[in-house]
Simulated scan of single mutants.
Amino acid sequence: MERREFVGASIFSVALNIPDWPDVMGRMEAVRTGSARRVGISDVELVKRMTAQLSDTYDEFGGRHTRPLAATFIAQTVTPLLLTDGAVETRKAMMSAAASLCFLTGWMAVDEGMHGIAQRYYVKGLELTGGSGDRLTYCRVLRGVSVQAVDLGHGAMAVRLADAAAATAPESGPRMRAFMGGQQAHSLAVAGDRSAALRSLREAERAMDQAESTSQNLGNYDPAVLAYHVSQVRYALDDVAGSVDSLKLHFRLRTPTDTRRSALRFSSILAERQLELGHVELACNTWAHVLDEYPKIHSGRVDRHVAAIAQLLSPYRANPTAREVRERALQATRGQV
């Protein structure tokens, strides 16, 4: 996929053909064999461990450099392993591990604004879950496409994808319900269905209250992330002040292990909404923190937020604080394409 020309790479297709779970089950064609070696469980562990390390690197530093590493690993290591013969259960495990890596790579492509490429990785991940029977990863990838759609303003499509992910979830524990419900609520709010969005949000909040453990890996979904979803729902429903309050709660609930990349992205959103409320000094203080940390991150999303600071503060150049932050932002983004 990475060898294809980047024409249309940033275009999100609302006509994307998402395979349903019954369709992907058993859909994988018989792969060609003939390699001199057989895929083993150690190969599966290699892919899992590399995916975990790439995810950690992305969370800490952003995706601009991490995504090309992931794409190269898929092309040069994972694809040959998928085309190698082996025991049935081992091959299924390899497909599951590859699906998770495709999902991560697609997520990083979204960060760079390469939405068309991201969709290709997502669809490939969905197809691989069919070959492995990995229903949980299928559900997570489908939800990931919904996140991409709602962030781009495609509310109706985001709702369909979020609902399909929830319906496909392999279990219905409280954390899973919160994980799905928060995304459904955000999608419904962007789609303009206020009552359904608030109802889904209340269900997600109740489910999070019932969650007994954070040990299950559901994309690190916890009360802090749910607070971010509450903020997004409130903002989509024109409650800017409420969205700011929920973002502040998100930061109070964050743990020391939460990532620098997401902190800068959410801080940028907070500053933009503080300014929207007319709180210029508060917004500038938030942006100042973002600019302090910005050189450590290589994230397309954060780049776009920082690039917007100068224009957003342009009407406030008479304010010394705003003028200083605006100049810092201009210097930080100087030379960017």
Rank of each mutant, 00 (worst) to 15 (best):
208 M>E: 11
236 A>R: 00
153 G>E: 05
187 S>K: 00
99 A>G: 03
274 Q>M: 10
234 R>C: 03
104 L>Q: 09
213 S>K: 10
230 V>I: 12
205 E>P: 08
280 V>T: 08
174 P>C: 05
303 D>Q: 03
171 E>N: 09
145 V>M: 13
79 T>D: 11
3 R>I: 15
46 L>V: 04
322 A>V: 01
315 P>C: 06
222 D>S: 06
32 R>I: 09
335 G>F: 03
318 A>S: 15
233 V>A: 01
296 K>R: 15
98 A>I: 00
229 H>T: 11
312 L>T: 07
84 T>M: 07
188 L>Q: 02
60 E>Y: 13
217 N>E: 15
32 R>M: 14
12 F>P: 04
111 D>G: 11
281 E>A: 12
212 E>H: 14
322 A>L: 04
251 F>M: 06
156 A>L: 10
120 R>G: 09
301 R>E: 09
241 A>G: 07
67 R>Q: 13
256 P>K: 04
41 I>G: 09
32 R>W: 11
30 A>F: 13
267 S>C: 10
188 L>D: 03
312 L>G: 09
171 E>H: 13
61 F>A: 05
198 L>Y: 03
31 V>Q: 14
173 G>R: 00
163 D>R: 12
64 R>N: 07
104 L>D: 05
200 S>N: 03
210 Q>F: 10
61 F>Y: 14
181 G>M: 07
306 V>Y: 03
22 P>V: 02
60 E>N: 12
151 D>K: 11
2 E>F: 12
164 A>H: 09
119 Q>P: 11
185 A>Y: 01
293 E>I: 04
259 T>P: 15
174 P>H: 04
317 R>Q: 12
220 N>C: 09
293 E>H: 08
141 V>W: 05
74 I>Q: 05
229 H>P: 05
313 L>I: 01
106 G>V: 08
307 A>M: 11
111 D>H: 02
314 S>H: 10
247 L>R: 03
28 M>C: 15
330 L>A: 10
207 A>S: 10
36 A>R: 13
138 Y>N: 08
271 A>S: 04
49 R>S: 09
120 R>M: 15
147 V>W: 15
15 A>I: 14
222 D>N: 12
